[in-house]
Amino acid sequence: SHLLLVEPDKIFAMADPTTSDTDDKVLTTLCDLADRELVVLISWAKHIPGFSTLSLGDQMGLLQSAWMEVLILGVVFRSLPYDEGLVYADDLIMEREQCRTVGLLDLYCTLLQLIAKYRKLQLDKEEFVTLKAMALANSDSMNIENIEAIQNLQDILHEALQEYEKNRHLEDPHRGGKLLMTLPLLRQTANKAVQCFRRIMAEGRVTMHKLFLEMLEAKV
C-alpha cells in the first residue's frame, strides 16, 4: 500500500508542436521523455522504505544499474490494455511500423514479448509497483558497499509480494514465482534498450539531456 501511495503521476511526452514529425523528432521526444522520467524515478526511489537509509554510493549503484528496468516496467504496464502498441506515454503510443522506421524494431519485438507475459498473468497494479521496487533492489550492481542492507531491502519487498499473493491470488500458489521469473526477460529487454539508445547517442542524431546521457554512460 505504501508503494501504491508513492506511485508517481503520469508524464506526457509533449512532442514539440512547432516541428514536423520526422524520425529524429520522434527519437528526440522519446529521449526527452526518458530524461524527465528519470528525475521522477530518482525521487520515487527515495520513497521506497529502506532506500534512503542506504549509503549514497549504494543508492547510486542501484539506480545506475536498474533505471532502465524500472522505466521499461512502466511502459509495459501502460501497454497492457493495448494490442501491439507501446505506450511510452498517453500521448506517445508507438506501433510496429513507427518503431521500425526509427530503428527500434528489435526493441519493440522484445517489449511485446514481455508485455505478452504480463498480459497472460493479468499483472495488477499492486504487483507492478512491487516488481518495480524489486527490480531496483535486485539490480546486481557491481558497486555495492553494504550487501546486507540491500539483501534486507530485497527481503522486505519479497515478503510484501508473498503476503499480497497469499491474500489476493489464492487461486495460484505459484503466482509470486511466476512474477519473479519474468525478471530475466526484463533485464534482457533493458540491456537491449540501453544498447539502442547508446547507438542513437553515438550516431549523434538527437540531442539528449544531461541526466539521460549520464545514466546511459553509467550503465556498463
Binding site: I42, S43, L56, Q59, M60, L63, Q64, L211, E214, A218
Partner: peptide, 15 residues
C-alpha cells in the same frame, strides 16, 4: 562520483 553529478545532486535533494 564526479562523473555522475546530476544523479548525485538529485539524490541529495530533500524534495
Amino acid at each position: 562520483k564526479e562523473k555522475h553529478k546530476i544523479l548525485h545532486r538529485l539524490l541529495q535533494d530533500s524534495t
